[in-house]
Design a binder for these strands. Structure first.
Length: 349
DNA sequence: TCTGGGGTCCTAGGACCC
DNA sequence: TCTGGGGTCCTAGGACCC
């Protein structure tokens, strides 16, 4: 037997929300299916997940439902059903943790990093795919890498229902010619700013010294982006239980809010829900954030430290309304959000 | 033409203190 | 009257992720 090594598997469920819906609606198999909002294309909402058939018609996550049905009029539209997906997700994660000798770091509803020590990570990946399928009747793709970033990026090349390897020896062969935005953690804005300093591709980023990156992005983000380009960074998952830093609630209103009274009532309702979330965990708020999107398109965020940590929804709502008034803007309100940062638990995060 | 709702982490710049 | 360096806290906002 050859020596074992540590590998990171990135397990990602295929078209997760749609796949869960197909379990209870098998007759929809092979059809363009879209899960989003309340399933009503006339409402303000976006696509959460589209089936592969719908993706072929140009429907993507984040696309407005109105536009999605215009692109794919024959699509079957389903409302988002959170409790069902949460239950399926819990089943998936429990299946991963049941594999002998693994360390599991959950990334979201439908994905997780799995650390394994083995001389044959591909066999482990195939075993995990089979175990998840047997337990949940759901398919997943698995990226295998020697770092978290490489495993995460690899998954897309394995979709659907496949696997893909990315490690230090093939990273630049596979990724070098691609735009920097192909990296996990490099979005359109950072991509633009990299291009402005002459870095267009992953290979160019990987070859860049830290200095210009620090100058452009700061002492922490700069070197971090450079590491992303080399596929470097953390090489082992962290299974420490997750502790929330903040809780927030936001709502897009189907009809814009036009008066201060409407805004006040909406803030009271949002603040009440935030307070419920905090109370459930026995946590105290330290700062309140208000997010407002005016019609059309303009987002404004305000932050204020509370005089004393509070879990009184009236105080939270008053604080948020004071912040709103301070904006001094009387345009129609399309979205409101209230978020509370929380005191760290004893012992810190 | 229309853009959800839940989060995380980082930076810039000003205030304030020693 | 003008001038420091360093540190910390706070506000406001940016960017990214699923």
């Amino acid at each position: 037997m050859t020596g074992t090594a540590r590998w990171v598997l990135h397990v990602d469920m295929d078209q997760f929300l749609v796949a869960v819906e197909l379990l209870r609606r098998p007759e929809l198999h092979g059809l363009p299916v879209i899960v989003g909002g309340r399933g009503d294309p006339t409402e303000r909402a976006v696509v959460s997940t589209a089936s592969y058939e719908a993706r072929e018609r140009g429907v993507r996550s984040g696309l407005a439902l109105k536009l999605a049905v215009r692109r794919c009029p024959e699509a079957v539209l389903l409302p988002v059903d959170f409790p069902v997906y949460e239950a399926a997700s819990a089943q998936v994660m429990a299946t991963l943790r049941a594999h002998p000798g693994v360390v599991v770091e959950v990334l979201g509803w439908d994905e997780a990093f799995v650390g394994v020590e083995t001389d044959d990570p591909l066999t482990t990946a195939l075993e995990i795919q089979a175990e998840v399928l047997a337990a949940t009747r759901l398919h997943c793709s698995i990226g295998i890498g020697d770092t978290l970033v490489r495993a995460k990026v690899a998954t897309d090349f394995g979709k659907p229902q496949g696997t893909f390897f990315l490690h230090r020896d093939n990273w630049l062969d596979v990724m070098g010619h691609r735009p920097t935005t192909a990296l996990w953690g490099v979005g359109p804005r950072i991509g633009q700013r990299l291009a402005a300093i002459g870095i267009e591709t992953v290979a160019q980023l990987a070859a860049s010294p830290d200095d210009p990156l620090v100058a452009a992005f700061g002492p922490s983000t700069g070197p971090h982006i450079g590491r992303l380009g080399r596929g470097g960074g953390r090489a082992w998952p962290d299974d420490t239980p997750w502790v929330a830093r903040a809780h927030g609630r936001e709502t897009t209103y189907q009809a814009d809010l036009l008066t201060r009274d409407e805004v006040a009532a909406a803030l009271g309702e949002l603040a009440g829900r935030v307070v419920d979330d905090l109370a459930r965990e026995g946590r105290a708020a330290t700062r309140v954030h208000l997010k407002v999107r005016f019609a059309p398109f303009f987002t404004h965020t305000k932050v204020r430290k509370l005089g004393a940590p509070t879990m009184d929804p009236a105080v939270l709502a008053e604080t948020a309304l004071a912040l709103f008034d301070a904006l001094g803007d009387d345009r129609p309100v399309r979205l409101l959000g209230v978020r509370a940062e929380m005191q760290p638990p004893a012992g810190g995060y």
